[in-house]
Design a binder for these strands. Structure first.
Lengths: 358, 358
DNA sequence: CATTGATATGAATCCTACG
DNA sequence: ACGTAGGATTCATATCAAT
């Protein structure tokens, strides 16, 4: 069932799959571009965009109906913790987004793929359309979902990743060619885009579905990152070229594939650390300045200004901020070898000690 | 009627205005953010986003209904050549875009305002939402509209302007403050954004309408660029602060305000130029290489390979491209003082001569 | 081999004034 | 409204040939 390319109609093939069986869906549906005629470049050559039959619909409401059908299937197939990514452009994304919200999907982010090398507007008729939009959604409000925040941050050079992503369009060597050297598919997506999506919003071993497989870029990224995949594609030719493409791809183990940056550290309680001698009941907790403020109780709580409080509420009081709680591990310090050391640091050392024991 | 701030309900006040009376609409409607509770920054201070009553709706369909009403009024008020810009974020823009397409609006572009200094995501729960989306639309497919292509290009340092715009959020000195120094309005838009929009999509003297006036940024940009404005705003306080703000703004004449880069040059025909001696009937037209290819006829057409053709069709033939026509003024050359000079250049000199005469 | 220059190409709602 | 003739319009990047 997994790691297969299914050659068939999107909606029909989705109907064959069981409820709540998919962790991540990436969908690159027809955009319904509504172009007609031939567009020439200023130098007189022809521009070959997407004028495939599969992108033709009779009307926008016809397109909305089609979108509603496959998106409803997406919702059925997703696990409660799963999420879906849909890519589109100006012509279709407002229909797609509206249908998604209508079906109960809850948006996590809309992401802009800014093309670093877009096709220019040849005639100067409007702004150069240099982006596409991705909608990232979960099944319902408050659904839990996979987001590797620190992996995303790592991929963005250590800074919080935002909603505008810059990538070049798929071209040159990356682009699949037919036997005569022409581009195989008019709308092949860049592998780097899919890798980022899969890396930050799914886990190693997860099942990824792409209802509009095309050149199988989603599968290539999934395989490389150690995810399972199910691809649906109606054109036999694309399936065959895709199959051959995937034979050249293999799992490349990495910190990103495993999202090691996002691993939760072992949870240790204050009580445990007191028991093991990292802290002493009765010792004074200080702020950065090292002045005694609160006194550690045997149960890990703090005595502060005559009150017994948990360390996080107590941190907010000591710092005198509006918030009811602050991260006490960072706020509070203890004196070690004459210096104020944060609880967080002591905890880190404690964890390191545990790791050494094992 | 013009250059006024109307203190009243958006839809009611729009209903008072006459059909087809507006050139440009900029609308910054409530976003229906669906936030609740208090968001604290990591250091414990409170983040003040938009939690205003005017942003509360009972449901997304309630929001869609409201959107449909004011957008239908926009469509009624716009001249056939007018256009509308609507700004929104993930929470609302897919509803707005869908309603617009449903009403018959035709998108020119969707534009991404990428914030160079977005509010970080404090909790690391999703991608940092660092953009907002603008929808630029006309009343119907094939509608003529104002777009100052070369002005846009000029504003972008000489390169074609794209659909992703980077601006900082409105802050510091630009931000309107109340008597106690707090920000007056939660969603004040940057003046630079409005200036660009108005400069590229309207003409000097045009009428600009903003149905959700707020801090009157649209009016400030319109006044500065020599456009008339009509602002609707339901909060009296905003109207008062806005009125005072506008007293400080005046028209600043400029090439951008007048879109001089986009002025159509005086139209001159080949016949006219032959008559005035810039060309001689019977002379040879060449390509860049200076070799004789086509012979100029008295009516301005060209004799090429035994055929009489207009110079543009003839250019396509001579260059042997797929396109039926090329710009003959750039393709064709004549010999002047031993050198091949483009027809375009000769025409420029001819125009310059005409200008000197006047 | 390194550098330079020519050529190809990418999801595109891609013209407009006049009769 | 519709047809027709005139005329204005492109950027980043990959590849490959030539030097």
């Amino acid at each position: 069932m997994y790691n297969t390319i299914i050659n068939g109609e999107t909606i029909h093939e989705m109907q064959q799959l069981p409820d709540k069986s998919i962790d991540l869906i990436f969908a690159d549906p027809p955009y319904f571009m509504q172009t007609n005629g031939i567009l020439n470049r200023p130098e007189g050559t022809e521009f070959h965009g997407c004028n495939d039959d599969w992108d033709k619909f009779t009307s926008l409401s016809d397109y909305a109906l089609f979108s509603c059908k496959w998106l409803a299937e997406c919702r059925r197939l997703l696990k409660p913790s799963g999420s879906v990514w849909v890519i589109g452009s100006m012509q279709c994304i407002y229909t797609l987004g509206n249908v998604m919200q209508g079906l109960g999907f809850w948006f996590i982010n809309d992401i802009i793929w800014q093309k670093s090398n877009p096709t220019p507007n040849f005639t100067g008729s409007r702004l150069n359309n240099s982006h596409e939009t991705l909608l990232w959604a979960v099944k319902y409000k408050h659904a839990k979902f996979t987001f590797h925040y620190k992996t995303a941050k790592h991929l963005n050079g250590g800074r919080q990743l935002g909603s505008v992503w810059t990538f070049p369009v798929c071209s040159g060597n990356e682009r699949l060619r037919d036997s005569e050297g022409r581009k195989l598919h008019n709308t092949q997506k860049p592998l780097a885009l899919l890798e980022r999506i899969i890396a930050i919003s799914s886990n190693l071993g997860d099942v990824v579905l792409d209802p509009f497989g095309g050149t199988m870029t989603t599968a290539a990224a999934a395989k490389k990152l150690g995810r399972k995949f199910i691809m649906i594609e109606r054109e036999k030719t694309y399936c065959e070229y895709g199959q051959r493409r995937l034979e050249e791809v293999s799992f490349e183990d990495s910190d990103i594939a495993r999202a090691v940056f996002d691993r939760k550290p072992l949870r240790v309680t204050m009580q445990e650390m007191i028991r093991e001698g990292a802290f002493t009941a009765g010792e004074w907790f200080t702020l950065k300045d090292g002045k005694p403020r609160a006194q550690l109780q045997p149960d890990g709580k703090l005595l502060y200004d005559g009150e017994i409080l948990d360390m996080h509420s107590c941190a907010a009081k000591a710092r005198n901020v509006k918030a009811k709680r602050l991260n006490g591990f960072d706020v509070w310090h203890v004196i070690r070898q004459g210096k104020a050391v944060s609880i967080s640091e002591v905890r880190e050392n404690f964890r390191a000690g545990l790791a050494r024991e094992n």
